[in-house]
Amino acid sequence: MFTVEDIDELVSRLLKHGAELVGEMVQYQDSYRLCYIREKHGLLIGLAEQLGNKG
């Protein structure tokens, strides 16, 4: 699982390069937005964006 600053922007860029969203983007309470991406060679990557107080 990797923490990212802007999950929507990153997922958009990855999809343009042949990645695939696995399932759907989900939100865990008011803390995180999470998703899994399968890149074009089959590697599964978890992404998480912290919401709210990021400091």
Score class of each variant (00 low, 15 high):
24 E>M: 07
12 S>Q: 11
48 A>S: 15
6 D>N: 15
5 E>Q: 13
43 L>E: 08
46 G>I: 03
47 L>E: 03
25 M>R: 04
4 V>T: 13
20 E>T: 15
23 G>H: 01
48 A>L: 09
2 F>C: 10
47 L>I: 00
20 E>K: 14
29 Q>D: 14
29 Q>S: 12
54 K>C: 08
29 Q>F: 06
36 Y>Q: 09
41 H>L: 08
15 L>D: 01
18 G>T: 05
41 H>A: 11
9 E>F: 12
39 E>N: 13
49 E>S: 03
40 K>Y: 08
12 S>T: 07
8 D>C: 08
10 L>A: 04
12 S>Y: 10
44 L>E: 10
16 K>S: 14
48 A>T: 04
18 G>H: 02
45 I>R: 01
3 T>C: 10
50 Q>W: 05
30 D>P: 05
30 D>C: 05
1 M>I: 06
15 L>M: 04
54 K>T: 15
31 S>Q: 14
34 L>D: 14
12 S>N: 13
31 S>T: 15
38 R>C: 10
1 M>R: 05
49 E>D: 12
18 G>R: 03
52 G>Y: 04
7 I>L: 15
25 M>F: 02
16 K>R: 11
39 E>L: 06
52 G>V: 05
2 F>Y: 12
42 G>F: 06
47 L>G: 02
19 A>S: 15
4 V>P: 04
47 L>F: 00
53 N>V: 13
40 K>W: 07
37 I>G: 02
24 E>K: 11
28 Y>V: 13
